[in-house]
């Protein structure tokens, strides 16, 4: 009886990288499209994100969507 440490380690590594990567990217997307915390008395729209941040955010969301698609592919192909 031998424990397959390599497979276990691989699962751990892949899980950690993918989870942190996807959550990080998605957060970048959210941050890019959300306003910053409004200060008391600040003008409306002062915290709105710029065009660059928006493009970056949409790119991040696109990568996440691709990851979900790959996930579905893995389930279907398994």
């Amino acid at each position: 009886m031998s424990i397959d440490w390599a497979a276990l380690g691989q699962v751990f590594g892949v899980t950690l990288v993918v989870t942190v990567g996807i959550v990080g990217l998605f957060t970048v997307g959210i941050v890019g499209t959300a306003r910053t915390t409004q200060q008391e008395g600040a003008a409306a729209g002062a915290g709105a994100p710029g065009a660059g941040a928006r493009i970056g955010a949409y790119a991040a969301f696109a990568v996440c969507a691709a990851a979900v698609a790959y996930g579905i592919y893995l389930i279907v192909a398994a």
Partner: peptide, 14 residues
Amino acid sequence: AATRLTYRLARNRD
């Protein structure tokens, strides 16, 4: 790890 990261990144947002 992912929770830590996302709270850190989004800490200035509404």
